[in-house]
């Protein structure tokens, strides 16, 4: 076991000794910081703070909006036309349910940064695609495999290393997002209940902390699937370029493909019809009728096992020859 930890440690060292890895962290930090700056300084009303007399404030705001909407010339105020009814609706939800609107804070910013998990997926795919292929490219695979550690163990240490890397990126994103959010927007306390626009257009109160964990969790499912896919491709073809290209292409084109063939029954067995488990939450419809969360989880598990088995076969059963 300690032997295995040493192998994982080796992989982590090889990862972090290269500049490209640090560039990934820098890019992620930069996006998180820029995002916060944009939210902070391009005020669209979401940063509005309310005091103790928030009920009157909201009513006043509603009145103003209604007035504006009546006065507005159709072509002049396109922006507020689009925004105002939504604000109105949200305000009404607060008034009807007697929930005090919360100010924008670090937790909220963290929640909104869930989309950055795609960037983490991208970086993890790049690392997963290279972790074995590069050893072949550098020729170091030969020295790696003539040690008293089985090929399976070396494969596993590399795979675990990818997951550790993804987790590190995720923690980094969370820490940076929250910190930047705290500096620019403040912190309202952890038990924050937020009112969020649901996918079906209505508003609902949610437990922001719980929702944040769930949102990131769903993104991680997608990440693990795509990283494992890239890992398999690079193990089979021993080339990182192909694995990166294929995995990223499928990550972006996958949903389109599913949409394109969604009238067929077999479409629901396509990996990409199932990677987004959030399709079963928030009142939205699944990609294909009749699919359930349990169905998707089973399909994902089957794919996952196939990916790992194929990687295992390609890595442990084949010759390491020149050329």
């Amino acid at each position: 076991m300690s032997n295995f930890i040493q192998l994982v440690k080796n992989e982590q060292i090889k990862l972090y000794v290269r500049k490209a890895t640090w560039v990934m962290f820098a890019i992620l930090a930069l996006i998180a910081i820029l995002g916060a700056v944009i939210v902070r300084f391009i005020d669209d009303g979401s940063l509005q703070e309310y005091g103790d007399d928030w009920r009157e404030e909201l009513q006043e705001e509603n009145q103003q909006i209604t007035q504006q909407m009546e006065e507005a010339n159709s072509d002049e105020m396109e922006f507020s036309e689009a925004m105002n009814p939504a604000t109105l609706e949200r305000n009404n939800y607060h008034l009807e349910n007697d929930i005090k609107p919360q100010g924008y804070d670090a937790w909220k910013y963290l929640y909104e940064n869930t989309f950055l998990a795609s960037v983490i997926s991208l970086f993890t795919i790049i690392v997963a695609a290279g972790i074995i292929a590069n050893e072949f490219k550098w020729g170091t695979i030969k020295l790696l495999l003539i040690r008293p550690a089985s090929r399976l163990k070396i494969l596993a240490s590399k795979y675990i290393s990818i997951l550790v890397f993804a987790l590190t990126l995720l923690l980094f994103l969370i820490v940076v997002s929250w910190t930047v959010g705290a500096i620019l927007f403040g912190v309202d306390g952890l038990s924050s209940n937020a009112v969020i626009l649901q996918l079906d257009g209505t508003y609902e109160q949610i437990d922001l902390f719980k929702e944040t964990i769930i949102a990131y969790g769903f993104k991680m499912v997608n990440l693990v699937m795509m990283a494992t896919f890239a890992f398999m491709i690079s193990t089979i073809f021993r080339s990182s370029g192909m694995a990166i290209g294929l995995a990223i292409f499928l990550m972006f084109a996958g949903n389109g493909v599913v949409l394109f063939v969604s009238q067929y029954d077999w479409a629901k067995y396509i990996l990409f019809a199932n990677t987004d488990l959030s399709q079963y939450t928030g009142g939205s419809e699944p990609a294909i009728e009749g699919m359930t969360m349990a169905f998707s989880i089973i399909v994902l598990l089957v794919y996952y096992c196939i990916f790992l088995a194929a990687s295992w076969w390609a890595f442990t059963k084949r010759d390491v020859a020149g050329q």
Binding site: S2, Q6, K9, K14, V17, G139, T140, K142, I146, P148
Partner: peptide, 27 residues
């Protein structure tokens, strides 16, 4: 102990780091 074909090492690491890497693989 072996060298197979060319003595290929990790070019982005120092000689010592390379040796430590392989040393970690053997208790």
């Amino acid at each position: 102990g072996a060298i197979v074909e060319n003595p290929e090492m990790y070019p982005f690491m120092t000689g010592r780091k390379n040796l430590e890497h392989y040393a970690r693989m053997i208790p």
